[in-house]
Structure formats: structure tokens, C-alpha cells
Simulated assay, not measured.
Amino acid sequence: MSSIDIRHAHSLPVDGARKAIEDVAAKLSERFGLQSNWVGDVLNFNGSGVDGAIELQPGQVHVTAKLGFLLSAMKGMVEGEIQRVLKEKLG
């Protein structure tokens, strides 16, 4: 099992960052078929072969995920897609 740990800085107000994270989750859902839900300032997501969270912190977001066997082989691609979408939505 592989894991992903990404921190991405942002300068958005809380509401703007929360909306951006929802946009990130929507993109990841399209790409990887993930389901997501908010618990406080953490957007939990899961799907076939992945389980993780995007935590909204002051000035940054912290993405963590555990990848199952099949997605572990594509860790670089999954990580790259998450970083690309974070940059697109959070700057």
C-alpha cells in the first residue's frame, strides 16, 4: 500500500479555499470515481482503491491518501493529477 502526502500553500479566504477544495474533489471524482464528504475542515474522500482526506489549514491544504494495490502502481500519476488540480484551483 502506497501513501500520498501533499501540502499546498494558498492565500484564499476560508470560504474561497473551501469552495476550491470542493472543486478539487469534483475533478478527482470525475477522474477516479471518488465520493467525498466534509467533517469540520476536512474533506474525506474514498473510492475503489483510495482512501484519503484534504484538510483545510490556515494558508495551506494538506492532502493525505492511502492507495490500494492497483493504484499504488500509478502513484506518480495520481500524485501528479492531485498537484495539478490543486495548482489550478488554489493557485
Rank of each mutant, 00 (worst) to 15 (best):
M1H: 08
M1Q: 06
I4A: 05
D5C: 04
D5A: 13
D5F: 03
I6W: 03
I6V: 11
R7L: 07
H8L: 00
A9K: 11
A9Y: 01
H10C: 03
H10N: 11
H10K: 06
L12N: 01
L12W: 03
P13I: 09
P13H: 03
V14E: 14
G16F: 06
G16D: 11
A17P: 08
A17N: 05
A17M: 06
R18N: 07
R18Q: 12
K19Q: 14
K19E: 15
A20L: 02
A20H: 04
I21R: 04
D23C: 10
V24I: 15
V24Q: 10
A25P: 01
A26Y: 02
A26E: 15
A26W: 02
L28D: 03
S29P: 06
S29C: 09
S29E: 14
E30A: 10
E30P: 01
R31N: 08
G33E: 11
G33F: 07
Q35Y: 09
Q35H: 12
N37L: 07
N37Y: 07
W38H: 05
V39T: 13
G40I: 01
V42T: 15
L43E: 04
G47H: 10
S48L: 14
G49W: 12
G49C: 11
G49E: 13
V50I: 15
D51V: 12
D51T: 10
D51M: 12
D51Q: 13
D51P: 02
G52K: 11
G52H: 08
G52R: 08
I54G: 03
Q57F: 01
P58T: 12
P58Q: 09
P58F: 02
Q60E: 15
V61Y: 07
V61R: 09
H62K: 11
V63S: 07
T64W: 04
T64K: 15
A65S: 13
K66M: 13
K66S: 14
G68L: 12
G68H: 09
F69H: 06
L70V: 14
L70Y: 08
L70F: 13
L70N: 01
L71H: 00
S72N: 12
M74N: 00
K75C: 04
K75W: 01
G76R: 09
G76F: 03
G76L: 06
M77V: 09
G80Y: 02
G80I: 05
G80R: 03
I82N: 02
I82P: 06
I82H: 04
Q83C: 04
R84E: 14
V85W: 05
V85I: 15
L86Y: 01
L86P: 00
L86T: 00
